[in-house]
């Protein structure tokens, strides 16, 4: 019974890692770049929702606040691509890594100056509510997280598999020059994907905030989500979700049955093992790169 309880909590946590990882994968799928600021985008999204929705701030209804926050963060993501990332178009991947690390600090500073560094709590309709089901306690927030994650993953997968824009984005990532030649507006597609990943990050942030207090440093969760994305193979949406779930489940179980430090190490040990045995993730899409 205890194991089941841990498992359920782990799955809900894993969904949040998975959601942040989805943001990584989105950008990776479209431009083969890695956005190290994804965790901080999640943090900023949560804070914007909090600023709009909490009764002592703007006090909008919860649903409206979340949708507005998603739109705003979509704008932030699009703006980051437009103003900063586009400048280093055609530079090595390494430049984007350093650039986004620096951007993460900027976002943290912005959130810290507006909302301060003391933890705040987001008011949601389902905070603290529980369901009893045959001896285990199911938090409503956890259930909503799992549901939202499932819907988002399927939606994004369908977006890349079936829509014109999604296909264009994949084409742009596979061969930029060829995509240009067949008329894909590569830059515009990139901007769109960054916006989308900002919106997804907001959802992740709201789900994270529904379970506890947030402060500007929660963006460091991004590193763990990153491990999730890597375990799944950077280019795969379902892989990212599964990687997140794996980490989410292993963490509390390792924490329960092993010393505390081991729980902190577990995600990274899994990641290293996956990297060593299958260098491009469990759902590999990569063949050897040519010159």
């Amino acid at each position: 019974m205890e194991l089941l309880q841990l498992l359920f909590g782990g799955i809900a946590n894993g969904c949040i890692y998975g959601l942040v990882a989805l943001g990584f994968v989105l950008i990776y799928k479209a431009s083969e770049g890695v956005n190290f600021a994804q965790g901080d985008m999640m943090m900023l999204g949560a804070f914007i929702a909090l600023g709009l929705g909490n009764s002592d701030q703007l006090g909008l209804p919860f649903g409206l606040a979340v949708i507005l926050a998603m739109v705003l963060m979509g704008g932030v993501g699009w703006g980051i691509e437009r103003v900063v990332v586009r400048q280093i178009f055609g530079q090595p991947q390494f430049a984007l890594v350093i650039l986004t690390i620096a951007l993460g600090f900027v976002l943290r500073f912005v959130a810290g100056s507006i909302w301060g560094y003391t933890p705040l709590v987001l008011e949601t309709p389902f905070t603290g509510k529980n369901l009893q089901l045959g001896g285990i306690v199911l938090g409503v927030a956890d259930l909503v997280t799992i549901l939202v994650t499932a819907v988002l993953t399927i939606g994004l997968w369908a977006f890349f598999a079936f829509t014109r824009v999604g296909l264009a984005a994949q084409a742009a990532s596979q061969n930029q020059m060829a995509a240009y030649i067949v008329g894909v507006p590569v830059m515009r597609v990139n901007g769109l994907i960054w916006g989308l990943s900002g919106a997804v990050a907001t959802v992740a942030g709201v789900m994270y905030a529904s379970k506890g207090a947030i402060d500007p440093n929660i963006g460091l969760l991004g590193i763990k989500a990153f491990a999730a994305a890597v375990i799944g193979g950077m280019g795969s949406l379902p892989g990212a979700l599964l990687g997140g779930l794996l980490i989410g489940v292993v963490e509390p179980i390792a924490g329960r049955y092993a010393p505390g430090e081991f729980a902190a190490m577990a995600p990274y040990i899994i990641m290293l093992v996956v990297l060593v045995t299958k260098p491009s993730g469990l759902f590999s899409q990569m063949q050897a790169k040519k010159v």
Binding site: S31, E32, G90, P92, Q170, S173, Q174, N175, Q176, M177, G235, S236, Q285, M286, Q287, A288, K289, K290
Partner: peptide
């Protein structure tokens, strides 16, 4: 340099 990947999907 323009990006070119060997990803299949």
């Amino acid at each position: 340099s323009y990006l070119k990947t060997e990803r299949q999907k």
